[in-house]
Design a protein around this nucleic acid. Structure first.
Lengths: 343, 343
DNA sequence: CTGTTAGCGCATTCAC
DNA sequence: GTGAATGCGCTAACAG
């Protein structure tokens, strides 16, 4: 329900309104409402009742001015339309919103100038902390170590290891994919990925190769790198199959690529997963669950990443600081029909 | 660059710091910095220089307390993961962020309790306005008309016409799709859409039928409604083609459905667009540009919707109020290879 | 336990 | 032109 104070269009009830009609001082009213111990049960009850009656809502602005903390954190993202920042953002909003803190959202649109602008705005608003969410897992420049509030970098790590960064473990993800395929008996495994200028592409590839080596296997052909698109997946699968018709599994650098790959495999009359198993990356639900068959994929756990980021901010506020460094968060394997046949 | 005040870890410079080192009173400093007329050019220069030197950043919190306006608007969304709210949100953030106002983001996760919680928080933070962004174009319950700040509903309209709502014109979108197909010479047009419990599905269908009637045509078969998925698109296309093998165009209720449809058409050996033209809805880039052929689609212009919403808030603040009602924003047609063959 | 006294940082009267 | 005084709504010492 909407507080009735607003119904009559008059100015919002203030603490002193409450105090006055409860017959106490503002100080006492404040203590009562904030659950401070040094108030008699009777007066507390009375103040609470009056506050309820007047549907008093404390002015956070004033409260902040007095207390020094604003109960807001800035969320500085560089690419709001990215499908990756979103889950992160949700996780953060989740962990923060559960408490009393609100989120100030800023989208720099990948523009450094705009980012500085937003940074200043956040600082002026005296946020208690800042979460920087990048659009790719490539490292980004630091906001600097001398900010008056804690900063944590999520998804895209800071290029400075004096900062705290949380990013998905892409190497581990690559391993996971191959280990799964080896487990289900595949031995002739190929790799099709996206733009090799992305750290993510290189890391996933590194992980996959490492896992292959551990299993005493070698990659079938060279890894194929190009763009993060279905088109490339389709083309690459064609290239791969004509060069190495005997592959029995393909690790893809993204779900988009995987969908393209599956598309071509069907066109070529190869069945997935019986003939060739396919593993995607990102676990992007819309893509993964709508393909035929549905996509086994590596889920980078972005929401957990966001939550961890928010928690790191809290820690940093409480403890005064937090140990910096790059923390890689473990991904998880989501098995669907493209690697294990289902009936 | 980061203000140097923060570099030395001390407390942020305040207005009185500036005043003091400039040798004036805080009042004068305030006037000088805010461009008020009653300050001599000389002192203004001096104050500005000092402020620059000390990299003074006014404490917005304090400024707000004194001025009454906070320069923040609340963005209350019910489904952050929705691919629809996002562009809206970007548009809003765009229009707002360009000025001096910041965005407080709240995600209610579709939970009414949580929404009330967030609403209170926003009100406590004394936001200047609230933009409510729903996850579908179905109407949603109003927050009430007696809030102390202007509210505008974007994407999902309010069920109360005492509120201002901005939503895409789905009827017009449906018309647009059919008109395009008629223009390129199609006459046997069918319609496959999503969940008919969605207003969007019904509206798009209504628009399509109206445009057909205007062209003196009838729909081939009944509209097929089910889920908003590729799976359904595939199945529906199969059903449709076996019942009406002679269709020459299919209007789809979403891009996902369109992709499924195209998939099946290829399986059945029908070519798109020469044999059968396909139009999607939403213009969801990742889906539309990665299909074979790329999808012609109706773009609901969500970002423009978000911008309009933000502007409405401004108006409402400036003018004291704004005329309520449901405003439908025109979509636009994006032509790609699924309706017009390209070489 | 309660009320009085001070600010938080700034904008805004008013005198000077 | 400038500065001293006042208050925004609240919290945080203190003193009773």
């Amino acid at each position: 329900m909407i507080p009735s104070e607003q119904v009559d269009g008059s100015r919002p009830t203030t603490l002193s309104d409450v105090a006055q009609t409860a017959g106490v001082s503002v100080a006492t009213a404040s203590k009562a409402l904030n659950g401070r111990p040094d108030v008699s049960a009777a007066t507390r009850r009375r103040v609470l009742d009056v506050a309820e009656l007047l549907s008093f809502a404390p002015n956070e602005i004033a409260r902040n001015l007095a207390s020094g903390r604003t109960g807001t954190v800035g969320l500085l993202t560089s690419d709001l339309d990215g499908r990756f920042v979103l889950p992160v953002l949700m996780g953060a909003e989740d962990a923060l919103g559960a408490g009393q803190v609100s989120v100030l959202l800023c989208d720099a649109r990948g523009d450094a100038i705009r980012e500085q602008h937003h940074l200043r705005a956040l600082l002026s608003r005296r946020v208690d902390g800042i979460i920087v969410v990048g659009a790719s897992t490539n490292a980004r420049v630091s906001l600097g170590q001398n900010l008056p509030v804690p900063v944590v970098y999520v998804y895209a790590p800071s290029s400075s290891d004096a900062d705290l960064s949380l990013t998905p473990d892409n190497v581990g993800g690559g391993r996971l994919a191959v280990e799964h395929l080896v487990t289900i008996g595949r031995r002739r495994i190929a790799h099709i990925s996206g733009d090799s200028s992305y750290q993510a592409a290189r890391d996933r590839s590194t992980g996959a190769l490492a896992a292959l080596a551990d299993a005493g296997l070698e990659l079938v052909g060279d890894p194929l790198f190009s763009t993060w698109s279905e088109h490339w997946g389709r083309d690459a699968a064609g290239l791969l199959l004509s060069a190495h018709p005997d592959v029995d599994a393909i690790v893809c650098g993204s779900d988009q690529i995987a969908r393209g790959v599956i598309d071509t495999l069907r066109d070529l009359g190869r069945t997935v997963p019986d003939d060739i198993a396919v593993v995607g990356f990102d676990n992007w639900e819309v893509l993964a669950t709508n393909s035929r068959p549905e996509l086994t994929s590596i889920d980078p756990n972005l929401q957990a990443l966001g939550r961890a980021g928010a928690r790191a901010i809290f820690e940093s506020i409480d403890l005064g600081s937090v140990s910096p460094g790059l923390r890689k968060m473990p991904p998880r394997l989501v098995i669907r029909g493209s690697s294990v046949s289902r009936r």
